[in-house]
């Protein structure tokens, strides 16, 4: 426990001395029925950082990520203890606005999942449902979101063609644009490049580098090189425990815990 706190303090020191946090996860336990998947996780997310979550398969990275926008609520038999504070308020507290939470804490999934609609309608889907009807404003939102997702130039001539005709990498950027269209503050990404080829992957990585100027990003990745390339801090999970979190170079060069060292030197996982 003491060491964990130390790591967290170190992180604070390295990233943002006057550190503004946007999320504070406190003593988070999660159960799938009787099976516990997360054990007392304590983790802060800083404004404007890219935080990578790494760890072997099945250690709870996706589960953890999905607690941050309450997407686990959907699954039957899930029970959650502890708190996830978003600007100081527990998103699991009473009277929380689930719609607002999910709008402002967006999510990109492992497999690109555009709707079977046109490119335009994919992006406009969220804003439309949230009440924007004006065609001109929708046009603006679509253009802005696609531009931010570095896709505008490739698709501006075929906005009304089906999104399913795009390549996998383009689809993933489309999905990112779809999230940006509802103006999130935090973007959660669950292995967004694991279904993509290397070129598409590096485009997404570049994109993440640009997005972090405006958004806070929490990204799960299987790929330690990727974590090293794109993230400011890295958190290492094992068997449902958060083992260590530190600025990325620190975690990879001088891990404090033996488990972390074993993992990053490839001794398991």
């Amino acid at each position: 426990m003491a060491e964990l706190k130390e790591a967290r303090d170190a992180a604070r020191y390295h990233i943002a001395p006057e550190g503004k946090t946007v999320l504070n996860v406190r003593r988070l336990n999660l159960f799938y029925g009787k099976k516990q998947a997360l054990f007392g996780v304590d983790l802060d997310v800083y404004k404007g950082e890219v935080l990578a979550l790494i760890g072997p398969s099945g250690c709870g990275k996706s589960t953890f990520l999905r607690t941050l926008n309450r997407l686990n609520d959907l699954i039957d038999g899930v029970r959650i203890e502890g708190e996830v504070l978003w600007h100081g308020e527990n998103i699991y507290g009473e009277g929380q606005d689930l719609i607002e939470i999910r709008k402002r804490i967006g999510m990109v999934f492992q497999r690109p999942n555009p709707f079977p609609l046109s490119i335009y309608d994919n992006i406009a889907y969220g804003p439309r449902i949230h009440g924007i009807k004006d065609r001109k404003r929708l046009d603006e939102i679509v253009e802005r979101s696609l531009t931010q997702a570095a896709l505008w130039d490739e698709v501006k001539d075929r906005l009304h063609a089906s999104a399913l005709g795009l390549s996998g990498g383009q689809q993933q950027r489309l999905v990112i644009a779809r999230v940006l269209a509802v103006e999130p503050e935090i973007v959660l990404m669950d292995e967004p490049t694991s279904a993509l080829d290397p070129i598409s992957t590096s485009r997404i990585e570049e994109l993440i580098g640009m997005l972090k100027k405006r958004y806070t990003i929490v990204i799960v990745t299987h790929n330690m090189q990727q974590a090293a390339r794109i993230s400011d801090r890295t958190a290492f999970f094992l068997n449902g425990y958060l083992i260590e979190v530190a600025p990325t170079p620190v975690l990879f060069q001088t891990p404090q815990k033996k488990e972390t060292e074993d993992y990053i030197t490839g001794r398991f996982g």
Partner: peptide, 27 residues
């Protein structure tokens, strides 16, 4: 209807009912 379609919609802050009417039923 693939689960990820439904999750994509919910994760955009769309309510369950609107997700049913605008993603699940059309598909």
């Amino acid at each position: 209807v693939p689960r990820d379609q439904k999750e994509a919609s919910l994760a955009l802050g769309v309510s369950h009912w609107r997700t049913i009417t605008s993603v699940l039923l059309p598909s």
